[in-house]
Design a protein around this nucleic acid. Structure first.
Lengths: 223, 223, 223, 223
DNA sequence: AATGAATGAGGATTCATTCAT
DNA sequence: TATGAATGAATCCTCATTCAT
């Protein structure tokens, strides 16, 4: 599948790019970003270190590309499910959809948690712009789908809900993935309070948010 | 205020410790953690580099101490306000309290955003344990106060609400504080969607959460 | 025995000095010089760090003093044994004496091995001079005793023999005490060649030296 | 000789490695190991600091490599001379060979003196093993040559003699190379006793050792 | 397009020693 | 004499990125 020596055509280049991303994804599964060495990714992908820089301008861009790929897949999955249930989606089914689709994407969750502090540093203007622009399209599209599934959402609230979910994921991911020493400490029974289950908290909080939105839609801003 | 040369008594040492923390806080205001050099903090505080390490075991512990101090102050402010309104707190007043108390603590917000990824790395077990243990007490105490202010909260939901707020702050802080280049990019009108106002989002989301909790308390888990 | 708080008289000061040396000796038993922290020695000796510097000008001088003490004890032991056997000492008894007296002084052996590379750096002229001057007296004295025990030694060869023994101890100590990793490596059966037993090598080589000296005395420089 | 910019082929890399070793050797001539800064070696060798680490894993490995190179050259010289005199070597010629070959290798002598205390720390297992393994071969080979030159040596005594010589070199090197202050002190006429001439002592002691061995071979362990 | 040799910035931390009290 | 708070020098190594080939 991977071009054995030289990627000449555009398709071959895309294939090689994908191969690199696949390697990065695999390694990111068990190694924090800081500990991932470009050299190791290169040799895993059977290319030279310099070759990585033919396909990605920097380490950050490589992982931003990975983020974009995973984000795209996530949105694809959401869109497919939302379209299927359009009009008839239950409140709970949306919550479940979010929970399930994120739970099966641990690497994506970890990428979300470092996107703003790590990956978005050291980008050039053009890359940043194109990233956000295409992100916007997808957010608006999926946001609209959400609105069509959850009738209590007003125009624009679908996209806003996605933003809130993004914040929740980042926050809970931080809380749920303590450092090694801290994980050890939190094993103490009396510190159970701080042992966060990502999916569970996400689902619970999302459900509350939707309830809040539904309630707000019904009774307005007054309580 | 600060002992001119040598902190002999316990109180003098506390003063010097505070002086160091004050310097760290000031520098952290305009410089990311990674770019803060211990050397610079030391000379700002008019002590030698080595002196910092008499008061804090590491850079991380220094900033963790700063976090603890700010956290304590925040909880103090919350507690005072909650106690005053006990029983009669309006739904909105709690939301406002959170928003206002956080908005005036930008350094604390930034510390929250890096607590789990930066400050809690490289701690020893004892420090981590004592941090979390005292944190737990305050969370439970303030959580209980919240429950006494918001009657729809069941036992335990006050502390849990604080956890959710913590996640929201981390998440929205990340979204609201883009890197320099990204901030530039987001100035484009068509990307307004991604320009997050921390306080506003926090308030809005918190309000929804509380609505959801109130609703849930009234009608149970069924929608 | 140790002055509880303040050493006023000369004798009290000597006692405290000895107490410090005793602590240093104990700790040096299981810790390399570089890893011995003055702070730890001080607290072990129940004095403050600064107090060490009232008794010794530097870390080097402290351990040089320890060296001198141990050297003195070793010479005392040698002298006593040599005097007892004067005139009638067998060849072997001298070899045994050296081996036995050194074997029971592991700390002294380790001090010998670092004397020239570590302890004699960073001395001031006066200390260095007084050290070597008193050393000379003892070497000459014990050298003379050796000559009176081993009749084949000519005047001056006793002191020279002590010098050679010194070199042998330093060299074999280095060979016999590999670093941790190297010790591990040398456990390989095929590397047995490099596993040096200090006492055994010392005895063997010393015996050869004495044989050589005896032979040389008998037949002159020609072989 | 040295590739101007980039060492591509294996031979070019060896050349560059040698160039680095040559610089290290030159600087080591007048500067103690501890005071040798990798930075300085790099700029002397006209490479960047990082480049040193392409060729040597650590400062210790760099100087261990230097030691190996010098050791190899020394053994080469010994072997050549021993082979030439095989069978007919006089007692004295061997002593002279050792003295002369070492005297002209001052850097090697200094490396020997720090091998066990400095260079062999901080090695990884593999490096240590390969070092000792190849060392063993050379020691056995040269040891055997010695045995064929000195008929009174029994099998195994050649290698053992090399070990003893090693110890003597380490010891006398320490005694002969005092620190700056100590050298000053030893200039005093009455301390002449402690002014050690490395070569002379080495030759004298080695001659005694050989005499001892010869004597022992003739008359057995009894004196 | 691919390689991989070369680059070089970057900073926390320890601990012997000093000296104000 | 004793204390212990304060000092500050000193340096190796990693690894993202570049660029000659």
């Amino acid at each position: 599948m991977q071009p054995s020596s030289r990627a000449i055509t555009h398709d071959q280049k895309l294939l090689r790019r994908d191969a690199i991303l696949a390697v990065a994804m695999m390694r990111f599964a068990d190694t924090p970003y800081d500990e991932l060495i470009m050299d190791a990714i290169a040799s895993d992908a059977d290319v030279a270190k310099g070759t990585l820089y033919l396909y990605f301008r920097s380490k950050e861009e490589l992982f931003l590309a990975l983020y974009e790929r995973e984000l795209g897949r996530w949105f694809d999955a959401l869109d497919a499910a939302l379209v299927k249930n359009r009009g008839s989606a239950s409140f709970d089914s949306v919550v479940q959809l979010m929970g399930a689709s994120l739970q099966e994407r641990p690497a994506f969750l970890r990428l979300m948690a470092i996107l703003h502090t790590v990956l978005e540093r050291n980008l050039n203007h053009a890359t940043a712009l194109s990233f956000k622009t295409s992100l916007k399209d997808r957010v608006l599209h999926t946001g609209t789908l959400l609105e069509s599934c959850l009738p209590f959402l007003k125009p624009g609230q679908g996209a806003d809900l996605l933003l809130k979910i993004n914040a929740l994921v980042i926050g809970f991911q931080h809380l749920a993935k303590p450092s090694k020493v801290m994980a050890e400490v939190l094993r103490q029974p009396q510190l159970e309070l701080f042992r966060v289950d990502l999916t569970q908290q996400l689902l619970g909080t999302l459900r509350l948010l939707l309830m809040g939105l539904a309630y707000q839609a019904k009774y307005g801003h007054e309580k």
